[in-house]
Write a protein that binds this DNA or RNA. Structure first.
Lengths: 227, 227
DNA sequence: CAACGTGGCTAACATTGTTAGCCACGCCGC
DNA sequence: GCGGCGTGGCTAACAATGTTAGCCACGTTG
């Protein structure tokens, strides 16, 4: 029970059965998005202000340092007053995570919309950039202990959809996402050897998955191993 | 400073330069281990008892639930008495993590020693099994917030070495490790879609990396894509 | 002008890790 | 035998955490 029951997941098993666009895309040769982008949750103006401040503070001092009293301090008020605008610290985290998922999902969908030549490479680059730009937020979004059940319905699925769109296969999509997340979190946590050239680590994975994608999807759009 | 300065890392950049065994292995065609297994840290008998209890409790109630008072309760004593045997809760976590790294590293090295036919497949299977057998310990070992600098010198490098041994290339090794960690932590956290067949997700990644390994190491030992 | 919702405050509580200080017990040297 | 002392337990207490209760000033609205 420690990690709760997760009802929302990233990387759907593919588009709903029988969707015509998935096979008959007009312009791009890979499937078109079929998941709707969930509308962001409504917050009071003051609540939004608090969440913004929390986000800035989060990047400064990390998830553990982000305490209700410090957050209140940064806003020129006392901790209990925060509860006039947010029900709990956990709700604040949910808001931050939803922010993060919306941003990262937007970036991934955007990357796929632009680059049709090398979707997997574009996806990985975008994923990595998004994480490096907001490391603490990325850590929070992917924290094991997070109460994932409270996140906006469909948000995680929408944010993860690009991995399916880029590979055309749900298991390859999950494997690619796993690689991206694993590499990013290990990079953020400084777990690779000091002198390592991480660009090449990402490239090694990208190359492997591009090849696997070509193999599972002959005549598809992913460019032949380009390295 | 939130995540500390990591001085020990997993997956070394390869064996020390000039090591003869790396190129001229006698029996197996892939490199032999060159990193020494660090001796476990010494603990008092009572300290070891505490650590064992902590480990059992960890799997029951998770890292966040594992509090000094609950641990003391489980041992029939009071929280402050724990400090007669361990300097801090953080030191306890370090001990648990070292336990975990030693076990997982042992399993990985063992797997490579047995199976020379499909080292990458064996490695991934072993990694996954080890994590699924002790999910909370795995979470702790790979937690972002962990003070990694205090871990026994060389332990992480030794535990990660098999990834290099199996691939023969440091960047491919890091990418493979990233995939393994990413997939495992996402599986443990229940972040894949409910109905997903995770065996196939692992297989998809394994296949991609085996092919990449063959490509970067022609005539090597990894078996040709066997699905 | 009275009523009331909004949004701040202080005081306080439980839980966490942790420290200080006390004491019972068993072993060692005389 | 016995005094001293280290070992390992205890209670009391502190600071920091999330959170609740209860108070009050202010602006809007009937």
């Amino acid at each position: 029970m420690a990690s709760g029951v997760a009802t929302n997941r990233v990387v759907a098993d593919g588009p709903p059965a029988g969707d015509p666009r998935a096979a008959a895309g007009s312009k791009a040769a890979y499937p078109q998005p079929t998941t709707a982008r969930p509308a962001p949750r409504d917050h009071t103006a003051r609540a939004a202000e608090i969440i913004d401040t929390a986000r800035a503070l989060l990047e400064e001092i990390g998830p553990r340092g982000l305490t209700m009293r410090k957050l209140a301090d940064a806003l020129g008020m006392r901790a209990p007053s925060l509860y006039k605008h947010l029900p709990s610290r956990s709700a604040l985290e949910v808001a931050l995570v939803e922010h993060g998922l919306d941003e990262i999902g937007g970036a991934l969908h955007g990357a796929l919309a632009k680059s049709t030549a090398d979707p997997i490479g574009a996806l990985l680059d975008t994923y990595r950039s998004a994480g490096l730009a907001n490391p603490q937020l990325y850590r929070l979004v992917t924290a094991s202990s997070f109460p994932r059940g409270q996140i906006l319905d469909g948000l995680e699925a929408w944010a993860g959809e690009p991995f399916f769109l880029a590979t055309g296969d749900s298991h390859l999509a999950q494997a690619l996402w796993s690689f991206a997340h694993g590499t990013l979190i290990l990079e953020l946590d400084g777990r690779f050897l000091g002198g390592s050239d991480l660009d090449r680590t990402w490239q090694a994975g990208a190359k492997a998955f591009k090849a696997a994608c070509d193999a599972s999807n002959p005549g598809g759009v992913t460019s032949p191993a380009s390295d």
